[in-house]
């Protein structure tokens, strides 16, 4: 039972990761690890920059 629960959680995390739903949380974790002193970007400001970056270059094919 616990095994199924973990599996489901992993699948949910994979989905969030693939879609970019957790991008801001990952950014905050990375930010904390690098030990910056200034406040990190707000969720809105981060998402704005992140989305612009996602579409720089060939991203979709035939």
């Amino acid at each position: 039972m616990a095994g199924i629960r973990t599996r489901l959680q992993q699948a949910w995390q994979l989905l969030r990761r693939l879609s970019g739903d957790d991008a801001y949380e990952r950014y905050l974790r990375l930010y904390a690890r690098h030990g910056h002193t200034a406040a990190p970007l707000s969720r809105e400001a981060f998402f704005r920059a992140w989305q612009e970056e996602q579409w720089d270059g060939v991203k979709r094919c035939c």
Binding site: R17, L18, L30, R60, C61
Partner: peptide, 25 residues
């Protein structure tokens, strides 16, 4: 750099790569 260069789990890379290559062709 936490932006375009990010070491990523292989299933996530697979998902992104497949979504990018598979179009209407």
């Amino acid at each position: 750099n936490g932006r375009d260069y990010v070491p990523t789990n292989k299933w996530v890379v697979f998902g992104h790569h497949f979504a990018a290559i598979a179009g209407p062709g």
